[in-house]
Design a binder for these strands. Structure first.
Lengths: 337, 337
DNA sequence: ATGAAAGCGCTAACAA
DNA sequence: TTGTTAGCGCTTTCAT
């Protein structure tokens, strides 16, 4: 293995100069620099990255903690993160937790051991105290979810507004009995979407009916199951706003399985705009969450933090919009908001 | 930062002993070991992983090169890889190439720089010569795709047989005009599935019709487009075997858009068994590729290689099976091996 | 603008 | 079974 000292000898300089050429070229006289670069090329020298990491206590690697990489919405965010990282010569270490909190805590050690320079969380299962400690010591960005009681850089969308827009869309179409299937109530994001839904119903003067509000867990199966229950009501809803596209698909499947038509006998709005929501039949009208952009933005904020120790925590709210497809029928034209 | 020497002093031993307790506990007398462990706990000592990586020229990290992490079939494989890695105290570095060959070559440097101990390829765009050089020097496993002219450990399924089974299923249902939409012909895997299809058609005595064989690229869009062309034939097919579930969905969408029914007026078999193939309406009959298991297996082979320098390259072929859903109608019962 | 040299913290070969 | 010690290859401070 050819090392720095070999290059130095060939170029008749010290290792310090070779190091400078590599990390801080302007600080070296041009003729010297060229001499060194020629030696590097001639010997086909490759710096030992591990030595460098050790010496500098930096790895140019960040950790992404994701509940489940199989889930489209998360893999899209990771895609955005990876792209931004690669552009800035950073690597992405994957921390898949399978929604297992212990695994999540395990991964945090990678930060403490300085195996990664920073972290992006696509999941908010860690307790506030641990997170606060972490955030004080290391660059961390939280994406999609957000928390109360932790001062942390966050990238998210306005879930209250999004929930309201989704419900308003159904109201505009003339629906009076509009159900909502939320994500797990344990997440602020789910509660906010519910709040948006409640705002829309209340402001429009429609009657609120508790039985039309149900809790799911974002999965197809939970959407299917909750819809089955809704269909059993003597006065069933004519429209459903589901807090994820997967649940919306479950809703539609359950409805079709009862011999009812979507659209026609039920209007459905989903959330996320995952790729399959346009492939599904009917195409799902949904609130588009800009997942790739969210990933991108979070990585860029993390880089800012990494490069600037005095970085102040920021809350970034990205735009999202309603994408109209077939699942509600076509009584409304064009985009909303 | 508390370091090994601090622990050593507190425990009245040398750093070597502390190191042994950490890496090779059996080689230390029990009483000494306990003394050291107590000191570690008392000081809350965390080993400096970067120093260890440097010293040992090993990182306990592997690289996964994936064409597109957004794509379900790949994210499932990655899921399997990550799970097996985590279990063995290995990390996974994500190398998303977006099907960009240059990025793929870039990532290879992580191996050469020893930033990762090994690599799993979910994509086969690298030229044989480079790959051969790499495989000689570093542990590498190729998953799903396979190559001629490179002696490399491979985890895959029997695509010829799978292609044959898919086509045979349609033949058994009584179809005479069965089309095939392949993946990109550049991949052996696509060619093998096509071969399987050809075998089935030929053996059954059906007439081969070139116009029924079309090339896609695994995407929904390509399935849609190729199906549009097939529908324009004066003698259109009554069944289609598509080489991916996404293409199968494109096929179904295109057919429905022409006012035809699936199943009923067209039978469709897909490939992969991604999550959405059961959610899609109609549920897609498909050749199940055990993506998570493939990921798992590949990681385990990589670990074997990492732990055993004399490891001999292996070719592992995993079982896959036809999953019957609604997209072909219900004339055949149960599973077909 | 450049060089000399002191480590970074750990591991492992060798010695005892 | 345990200790001594020489580095691993690079970066960076300090001196020139």
């Amino acid at each position: 293995m050819v090392k720095m000292i070999d290059v130095a000898k060939l170029a008749n300089v010290s290792t310090a100069t070779v190091s400078r050429v590599l990390r801080n070229p302007e600080s070296v006289k041009e003729t010297t620099r060229e001499k060194v670069l020629r030696s590097i090329a001639e010997l086909n020298y490759q710096p030992n990255v591990l030595a460098r990491h050790f010496r500098r206590s930096k790895t140019n690697t960040i950790l992404v903690i994701v509940p489940n990489i199989e889930n489209t919405i998360f893999s899209q965010m990771v895609q955005g993160i990876e792209a931004a990282a690669a552009q800035n010569n950073f690597r992405v270490l994957l921390g898949n937790t399978n929604r297992n909190v212990d695994k999540e805590y395990d991964f945090l050690n990678l930060l403490r051991q300085r195996q990664v320079d920073g972290m992006i969380l696509l999941s908010g299962k860690i307790d506030n105290q641990t997170l606060n400690e972490l955030v004080e010591q290391y660059p961390v960005v939280l994406v999609s979810e957000y928390l109360e009681g932790v001062d942390i850089t966050t990238v998210c969308i306005d879930n209250v507004t999004c929930g309201r827009i989704a419900a308003e869309h159904l109201i505009k179409l003339g629906h009076k009995r509009i159900a909502h299937i939320s994500g797990s109530k344990g997440t602020l994001l789910s509660r906010d979407r519910l709040i948006g839904y409640l705002q829309a119903i209340t402001h429009s003067g429609l009657k609120l009916d508790d039985r039309l509000i149900r809790e799911g867990d974002f999965s197809f199966e939970s959407g299917y199951k909750q819809m089955q229950e809704l269909l059993r009501l003597e006065n069933r809803p004519t429209a459903v706003f589901a807090s994820s596209d997967e649940m919306a698909m479950g809703v539609i499947k359950a409805t079709k399985d009862q011999g009812l038509k979507v659209p026609g006998e039920l209007a459905v709005v989903g959330f996320d705009n995952i790729r399959f929501s346009s492939i599904f039949d009917p195409g799902i009208t949904t609130v588009a969450q800009p997942a790739i952009e969210m990933g991108n933005t979070s990585m860029e904020l993390l880089l800012q933090h990494l490069n600037d120790p005095s970085f102040q925590h920021k809350k970034i709210m990205l735009k999202s919009e309603l994408v109209i497809r077939e699942s509600c029928g076509w009584n409304v034209k064009g985009k909303v908001e």
